[in-house]
Nucleic acid binder design. Structure first.
Lengths: 166, 166
DNA sequence: ATATGTGCAAATCTTTTGCAAATTC
DNA sequence: GAATTTGCAAAAGATTTGCACATAT
């Protein structure tokens, strides 16, 4: 196993050891490049998503947005999420539904990565590695599938909580 | 890339070529072994899940169950799904939300596998391979995470529909 | 006999939609 | 100024819950 991996907790994003760090290219620039009409609301929401150290669900995003624009509406949040998802600028996660049926969002990163969610303490870790990249290539090659989005989610127990698990 | 993979469409489950086929051990036996109280409703629902060639969502499962027991209730379906999920006897999938926000369920298989969902024709394919197994081991080893469940979902375009995609 | 599971109906939670007014280019 | 986006309010879709009755062991 000579593969190099990046493991990061939510608060350590980008400050990882071994390999290429996981980074999040500017959503704003990407939207501009594509000539997407920008409103005050979109700028606000996109900014929050871009800067958030945590993965946000729609309700939390709305909450945070309201702190700066109390008038902003749920519908706008959902419509903006839909816009970003359609354009492939954000990824959607369930984080193993560790807390309700929400969906979580994060700005698309420079490299695909999986998420590990600890059932006990709720910690979320990201995992990127060359093995993951190879698996994707293998899938594409062997099945002739043209991959657009990949979601890898792992549920279990983190190192610290792992005493109890298998 | 010397890895051997199993690729199967929904209707071909288990009839795959290269490697160890994907099989679904008996849920009923597993429940008996664990001393789970069995009711007529549970037997019915578990039987349907076990035998279904497709991945079922709660509404469809209810629909199918009603054909044999018109009195069966939604709540029972959800409670049974919760039971099976808690015990780790079924896996939950989103299939890239290719059709609404439903969750889909399938009896736990002998080997973990990912799902590819075609955005155009809606085909669902399963993918198991030794690379996938290796990736899991690598994740566990490098991060000290104790894996309980893994979900790999891929969205894109299948071979036939792939003309349009990247 | 007792604990457990079920059906029913209402509640909850998340996401979507129609429409008139506001905003962007 | 024309096309697009927003807020509002209501609707829709998925899942959960309290409770009285039924069932499994």
């Amino acid at each position: 196993m000579q593969s190099v991996a990046v493991v990061a907790t939510e608060s350590q994003l980008g400050r990882s050891e071994n390999a290429t760090a996981i980074t999040r290219p500017s959503l704003m620039k990407e939207l501009a490049r594509r000539g997407v009409r920008m409103t005050a609301q979109r700028r606000l929401l996109v900014g929050i998503i871009q800067d958030s150290p945590r993965h946000l669900d729609a309700a939390t995003l709305l909450e945070l947005a309201k702190q700066r624009d109390p008038g902003i509406d749920r519908a706008t949040v959902y419509r903006t999420i839909a816009l970003l998802k359609e354009r492939g600028l954000i990824d959607e996660l369930d984080l193993m539904h560790i807390e309700g049926e929400k969906h979580y969002y994060e700005a698309k990163t420079n490299r695909d990565h999986g998420h590990m969610a600890c059932f006990r303490c709720g910690a979320i870790m990201e995992y990127a590695s060359s093995s993951f990249e190879r698996l994707k290539q293998e899938i594409a090659k062997q099945s002739g599938f043209h991959i657009r989005v990949v979601r890898l989610e792992v549920g279990g127990f983190c190192k610290r909580c792992g005493k109890a698990a298998s």
